[in-house]
Structure formats: structure tokens, C-alpha cells
């Protein structure tokens, strides 16, 4: 049956209603898992609370397994699913900047919204900073257009909407199995690390 809206099984008009509903579920689960407290989030980098790693990896693994089972069963047509495009330098440079912003600001765009929703002023400030950052980027776009579009000096950066398994030509099923094993191993070791790290109360 594939993605319902792109295949017009559900009319396009429902798209925004579904967006709100899915957003609510997303917000509810993230807040309840503790993503509204920046100190709990940053625990990942200081070893005292691996919530982010556990939720993030479990969600990725569950979705990837689900998607490829659905694809095998013919429930979803992967050629209609939006695959995040790959711009090599843009992904790396953008990621590095975001990592710095993550560890200094304590939030990411999604979690800052969640923090703001329950009254965290630093969440609100972070979101304002986010908008300022986007404004700065947009104004400085002519300078950064090369990295963003993968043109000029960064020509050939755009590898298209390809998956990591297509790029390295390995079977996605095998990759997901490997990724799951790595994830479960990470859960186990982070548990050990947390026991040794000095606990931080927040």
C-alpha cells in the first residue's frame, strides 16, 4: 500500500492534520522520556545519563527494521519514501557546527521546543537563538551557497538521495542487523560507563 499520502490512498488535505497528530505523539513521548531537561540530554556527553543515546538508537533501529520488513511485505514502496539527500561537505560542516551548538546550548531544535513547551526559559532562548542562526545563514547564503548546493569548489558533493547500503553496495538487511548488534552493545557498555562516572543530580 506504500506511503499512504504520496500514493493518494489518504487525500492530501489530511496531511496537515496528520502532521499535528504525529507531532503531538512525538512531543509527548520525547518529553516523557526526559528530553525536556537539557541537563539530562547533555548527560550523554558527560557519561552520567545516556537517555539520548538509548532513545535515539532504539528509535532508529526499530524504524529501520520496521521499514524494511514493511518493504519486504509490500506494505511500503521505498521508492516513494523521502531519503535525506547526501551533500558530503555540507553534512560534515553542518554536523560539526551543530555538535558545537548541541554541547554549548544543551538542546537541539526538537528538544528545545519541548523544553519551551513545559516552561524552560533556556528552551525558549535556544529556539530564539535558532531563529537568529537561520536568519544569519540566510543573509550569508551567497557566501555559503557553494557548500549548500555542492557547486563550485564543492562540485561532486551531491551524491543524490542514496542510502548508505546503495553507496557501499551491501544488502540493507545485513546492515540493519549489524547496526542492531552495535546498538545493543552500546546500550550494554554505556550502562557500565554510567556506573563508573560520578553521578550528577539535576
Amino acid at each position: 500500500m506504500g506511503p499512504l499520502i504520496p500514493l493518494h490512498i489518504i487525500p492530501e488535505t489530511w496531511n496537515h492534520v496528520i502532521a499535528v497528530l504525529l507531532g503531538m505523539a512525538f512531543g509527548f513521548i520525547m518529553e516523557s522520556s526526559g528530553f525536556s531537561s537539557s541537563r539530562k540530554i547533555v548527560g550523554l556527553f558527560y557519561g552520567y545519563d545516556f537517555t539520548v543515546l538509548r532513545v535515539f538508537f532504539t528509535a532508529t533501529v526499530v524504524t529501520a527494521i520496521g521499514l524494511y520488513y514493511f518493504s519486504y511485505m509490500g506494505w511500503i514502496d521505498m521508492s516513494f519514501v523521502y531519503i535525506h539527500p547526501t551533500y558530503l561537505t555540507a553534512a560534515i560542516v553542518g554536523g560539526l557546527i551543530m555538535g558545537l551548538g548541541f554541547v554549548s546550548g544543551g538542546y537541539c531544535p526538537g528538544t528545545s521546543l519541548i523544553g519551551a513547551a513545559i516552561g524552560r526559559i533556556d528552551g525558549i532562548v535556544f529556539t530564539t537563538g535558532l531563529m537568529i542562526g537561520i536568519f544569519l545563514f540566510s543573509e550569508a547564503f551567497p557566501v555559503l551557497e557553494g557548500i549548500y548546493e555542492g557547486t563550485g569548489m564543492f562540485d561532486g558533493d551531491f551524491l543524490g538521495y542514496i542510502t548508505i547500503t546503495e553507496y557501499f553496495n551491501i544488502s540493507p538487511h545485513l546492515f540493519i542487523f549489524g547496526f542492531t548488534v552495535v546498538a545493543v552493545a552500546a546500550f550494554y557498555f554505556t550502562n557500565l560507563i554510567r556506573k563508573r562516572v560520578k553521578p550528577v543530580n539535576y
Binding site: I5, Y82, P85, L159, G160, I162
Partner: peptide
């Protein structure tokens, strides 16, 4: 051209 395999659903 490496087929960019543009997927139908707009996302991002």
C-alpha cells in the same frame, strides 16, 4: 548522471 533517484514524497 548518477541517478539521483528523486523520491516522490517531498521532505526535509
Amino acid at each position: 548522471i548518477k541517478r539521483t533517484k528523486k523520491s516522490a514524497a517531498a521532505g526535509g
